[in-house]
Design a protein around this nucleic acid. Sequence first.
DNA 1: CCTCCATTTGCAAATGATTTGCATTTATAT
DNA 2: ATATAAATGCAAATCATTTGCAAATGGAGG
Lengths: 142, 142
Amino acid sequence: MNKINDIESTLKSQGYKLTGQRRIIIDAFEQCPAHYTAQEIFEKVKTQNASINFSTVYRNLELLCKLGVIHKLNISSGINHFELKHDSHHHHVICVKCGDMQSIDLCPYSNLENKELEELGFVPIEHKFEIYGYCKLCSKDN
Amino acid sequence: MNKINDIESTLKSQGYKLTGQRRIIIDAFEQCPAHYTAQEIFEKVKTQNASINFSTVYRNLELLCKLGVIHKLNISSGINHFELKHDSHHHHVICVKCGDMQSIDLCPYSNLENKELEELGFVPIEHKFEIYGYCKLCSKDN
DNA sequence: CCTCCATTTGCAAATGATTTGCATTTATAT
DNA sequence: ATATAAATGCAAATCATTTGCAAATGGAGG
């Protein structure tokens, strides 16, 4: 049972249909697991099915988010990025100049004492940790 | 020398004019330091000057960000929030149900070993840490 | 105080990512 | 094979944010 089958059975078990378009979208993530904008996914997907529509892609990205299959990353640029939810929890460093985004394994959350959250009565579900700065290439130019 | 004067001299020293509209916008933050959407700031500001324009507010929020006086918070909702830059560095917990946002003092970054960043050759400038979940009120309803 | 001029404002319109309505098509349970 | 709920394609709507431009204004220098 590979990841794609996993996702496909998740869809079915929730009453969603396994359409050709969905297959292609999921494949696109599988083939190159990284973080993409909706437009980038759309470009990839069009190579497999030229008649697929952008709103179909967008709707399915939202659906896959809802199902917990992918993540929506809301970064400072204001353009959402989507990535397959990995087994390994991770975060991102983002270049403020070129917009490049890379994954990092370190997660500061695991070590946290959550007294403050307890005091607030806040029940955490997820968290986001992003480091903004200059990537290797852009820090040279500066 | 209070904070407003600080900000006003920052403006001047960078060659920006101290307009009535800017005064009002800065006042709005001072009077109730918290995180606001551009619309919220606009509403507050209109009570002081009914003829002020939204784009003026927006332009000045961007300017104040550039000057490092306020922060732009890009949260998952996709609507930017702005807050006065505090002396005390902090982060936020955000309710996924009602959208309420509260500040927390804990910062995971300070304890971080940055070996990974060094390997990437990444030069950090700032970081963002947000915890999403249910606030006290909303976790009761669930 | 007055003048000049770069900066700023108000306004209205553009942008661009995201979302929606609806008629048509499709997956799949039976 | 058929019925039907879900999904798609298309075009148009939304909505936060951004921009162009003519008119207004702050403040440096007289």
